[in-house]
Design a protein around this nucleic acid. Structure first.
Lengths: 208, 208
DNA sequence: CACATTAGTGAACACTTGTACACATCAGTA
DNA sequence: TACTGATGTGTACAAGTGTTCACTAATGTG
């Protein structure tokens, strides 16, 4: 018989969430996962699932919360490493891509959730993106690199930046994790997208 | 007993594809659909499915082909209606949004497929987007609105434009189909994204 | 008109699924 | 120390799943 003990509270909970992520990382779509499948992957009996989650949507929501933590950690790292404003774009894109590589499953889950079938998960991820964009706007304000922009215009710019980077996710996640050449291509293209946007922002309202 | 007759070739095929789209339109994710579910919605016996598709992925691929037709029709309409270059953005975004409203299920399928679980569907949708971007680049070249840009830079700009519009899909599809106010918000925001990008393109390379 | 092909049907299969129930074990607290 | 609630286990079941098979009706071609 399998031993039954609860070493730490929430250990199985974590196992279940990791199992779901692992399946997503293997190419499965979150919406197609079932309770039994997840518990099997976690090495846990199906009924244990209900001790921690009401259903798969609930698990998805809690994954969104963890995703938030991952994103915040990434932002903190970016803030610590990006010192000079002129390297800002390249450094940030680099950090993003390396996170997308390390936490591949998490970011796959994020990309899926944007058009997923749970409205709540969808809204959660959008909310994370909005937060990210507003923090980016604050940083730029602090760096005084966009003083000529109104708050609303700066917000819009950052929104577009975040969206563009998020879309690049589908590029990165679509290529093999060890295809360094293609990864470099994506990195460069994403960086140029952002440069284009910032050139637009720099010249915004000066015309018209 | 139900009558059994084959009035037109491919009638059931169409019924199955429409059934899948209908379920997607109701909020289900394509990856979570099953053969039985689709045939039930189509009012057809499960075995009929195999007369037309090998599996759900196959159905998805054929939906991508039809999606291509929808996109091409949209592009043709845009070309016919956008006469003056200064209204180009607003008109195009308007046409896009009205199509997204009319063919809601199709565009939901597209948004889902970008991060779906079938690599082939994913690649198909990306391919449609690339085609769209390259056609857009051709149009802009013909209009001579971006003569100072190299071909590669124009391609990149159009790529970013298409991505931004595609991302707006998740905005539009997330709101209720009859929420005109929110739809107008999305329309304006998307248009401003594109304006920002084009301002960037107009000033590209003139600096640095 | 005869015939091969295509498209549709229904029954059957072996599995998988979500969920409920009763029970066992642990951790902390009074 | 004895109790209590949280957590984990095993069994069970009805419903749903993908797929195969043999059969039938309609179609288009010779």
């Amino acid at each position: 018989m399998a031993e039954k003990q609860r070493r730490k509270p929430g250990e199985t909970r974590e196992k279940l969430m990791n199992a779901a992520l692992a399946l997503v990382g293997k190419g499965r779509h979150f919406a197609s996962l079932g309770i039994r499948e997840v518990t099997r992957q976690a090495g846990v009996v199906p009924t244990s699932f209900y001790r921690h989650f009401r259903n798969m949507d609930d698990l998805g929501l809690q994954l969104v919360d963890e995703l938030g933590l991952v994103l915040r950690r990434m932002m903190r790292e970016a803030r610590a490493n990006v010192l000079q404003a002129d390297k800002l774009i390249d450094e940030s894109v680099g950090i993003f891509i390396s996170h997308a590589r390390n936490k591949r499953s998490f970011f796959m889950f994020m990309a899926q959730g944007l058009a997923g079938e749970s409205r709540a998960v969808q809204e959660g991820i959008r909310s994370e993106m909005r937060y990210f964009a507003s923090e980016l706007a604050n940083d730029l304000r602090r760096l005084k690199v966009a003083d000529h922009l109104s708050d609303a215009d700066l917000d819009m710019t950052c929104d577009l930046v975040v969206r563009s980077v998020a879309f690049s996710l589908t590029d990165i996640l679509g290529i093999s994790p060890d295809d360094d050449y293609q990864e470099e291509q994506v990195r460069q293209r994403t960086a140029r997208f952002l440069q284009l946007i910032f050139v637009g922002a720099a010249n915004w309202k000066s015309q018209s």
